[in-house]
């Protein structure tokens, strides 16, 4: 066998090294996902079902999480709220990522007018506080999770755009890309071998941070009663609903707070860069 093929075969599977922090983050995230989506598979209580005789009942052996002020199962409500938050955050991140990266590469590649127009657009979005943009959209069409999703995606794409542009610009001007062009390679090769390997690892980090900030934004809007309307379970809305009962049932108020904390922590740990 020729040395080239041997070397190609040898490099096939580089052992992936995952840091311990990232591993802990993934573990917490998996547990949260199981908690959120398992009721869909095995069947659980309806998060909207009220039974006032259970109102503000504390945790017990049958119901580990207790009940809220209307006697709804906290476990069912938390799971439903988590599904909404995680699903919306994931969707927004993916929706923001794709145009962000495409526009970033386009901007770095074309330069000139194209770059200026797209950069100007992204600056315009940056000039507007992110939460305000989402607030505006939700005010126009109230009680519609789609508006939340569009608003958050519109805020998040700028980060991907800026990161991609900043990474791709020096790469495209580098001798390595010049050499590849001289050797006859086209844009597809330059994207695949030069740009993607540099941007790819960054995407996980930015994506995890983006998801964390999306979750915080959804909860913040729910807390000020702008986002999702009751009775739909939503972590921020649950907090504001349970706030008047914090003396009688602190467990009920603490649960959504703890869930947000765990979710954001897990995403931050997943996104954390490996220290050399």
């Amino acid at each position: 066998m020729a040395p080239l093929e041997m070397a190609l075969a040898a490099q096939a599977a580089p052992a992936p090294r995952i840091s311990r922090r990232r591993l802990i983050g993934v573990a917490v995230l998996v547990l949260l996902l199981l908690f959120a989506f398992l009721p869909l598979l095995v069947g659980g209580t309806d998060p909207l079902k009220q039974s006032l005789r259970f109102a503000l009942k504390g945790p017990s052996l049958q119901d580990w999480f207790g009940f809220d002020h209307l006697g709804r199962s906290m476990q069912a409500r938390l799971a439903a709220a988590l599904r909404l938050s995680l699903g919306l955050a994931f969707l927004s991140v993916v929706t923001a990522m794709i145009p962000g990266i495409v526009l970033g590469v386009l901007s770095a590649w074309c330069g000139g007018l194209v770059d200026r127009v797209i950069s100007g657009l992204s600056d315009a979005f940056m000039a507007l506080p992110g939460l305000l943009l989402v607030l505006m959209l939700t005010a126009i069409v109230p009680d519609n999770p789609a508006m939340l999703y569009i608003g958050i995606s519109l805020v998040l794409w700028v980060e991907y755009y800026r990161m991609t542009r900043a990474l791709a610009r020096p790469l495209l001007a580098s001798p390595a890309v010049e050499a590849s062009r001289l050797l006859g390679f086209g844009p597809a090769h330059i994207l695949r071998r030069h740009i993607w390997p540099e941007i790819g690892p960054m995407i996980l980090t930015v994506g995890a941070y983006g998801a964390a900030s999306a979750i915080m934004a959804i909860a913040a809007l729910g807390f000020v009663s702008v986002g999702v309307r009751p009775p739909t379970p939503e972590l921020g809305a649950m907090m504001i609903e349970l706030l008047p009962y914090y003396e009688e049932a602190p467990h009920a108020l603490l649960q959504p707070i703890l869930v947000i904390f765990l979710m954001v922590l897990a995403l931050q740990l997943v996104g954390a860069k490996d220290r050399p």
Binding site: L4, A7, L8, Q11, S174, P175, A176, E178, A179, S180, L182, L183, G184, F185, H189, R193, H194, P197, E198
Partner: peptide, 27 residues
């Protein structure tokens, strides 16, 4: 063709040399 002053900057940094050569022979 051209040979560059700083060899590491003339190769895609995260691609093995075998892969770079293989891309070239295939192209």
């Amino acid at each position: 063709q051209k040979i560059y002053q700083d060899p590491p900057s003339a190769f895609p940094a995260r691609v093995t040399l075998a892969q770079s050569l293989n891309d070239l022979t295939r192209l």
